[in-house]
Amino acid sequence: MGGIYARMRAGASGPLGDWTIVRHAAHDPAMPHDHHDHPHSLLPSDPALRVKALETILTQKGLVDPAALDEIIDTYENRIGPKNGAHVVARAWSDAAFRAALLADADPVLAEMGYYGRQGEHMVVVENTGDVHNMVVCTLCSCYPWPLLGIPPGWYKSDAYRARAVREPRKVLSEFGVTLPQDTSVRVWDSTAEVRYLVLPQRPAGTDGMDEAALMDLVTRDSMIGCGLAVAP
């Protein structure tokens, strides 16, 4: 993707609100409206116009509430992300009873922490140890534990990752900079619309005595997908 997208919202522009794409791509030859000044508004891309058409028609039919759409976007852009998962991991590292409960049956434990709902209805937490390294993929599409990790990164959704994670997990891991001991086995979990996985990474050495908040900073998103390790302090 070349260019940077910014969203502009204009206030008084009808029931839908208005948004348009600003693409700063002065050096992008593919940009169709790459002029110095624009006599008319930048024309959104074909798919952007199709999405607008869908939204307009469904709103006119009363099937969609634009305010609810804004709320959903705000939630995933600003409020839900890998920090939630990191919180769970840090607590599991700090509290043995919590960890045992989480691994035995994650749903009630996560619900108690407030990390439930959309695409997190049935969660399974898998623990990395010296013997086993777990890794998560969705070969079908891109099922992912939204309440714990937010929206998946582009590579998680790519054909390359979805196909290769299963076929050659060690090679994929090495591309993420992760090299495992030969005697560590790799287990790949295929997410579905019904079951989502969270990897509980190994607690790094040299973290004795660190509190939950400090531990959280060591937990990366990739480590909870199993494509990275927790960071050493």
Binding site: I21, K52, V64, L69, I72, I73, Y76, E77, I151, P153
Partner: peptide
């Protein structure tokens, strides 16, 4: 990283979740 690369990705995602 931004959750969505382009506004229409976000809009489409939200529309689908809402429906």
């Amino acid at each position: 990283e931004p959750a969505f690369e382009a506004p229409w990705h976000a809009q489409l995602f939200a529309l689908t979740v809402h429906l």
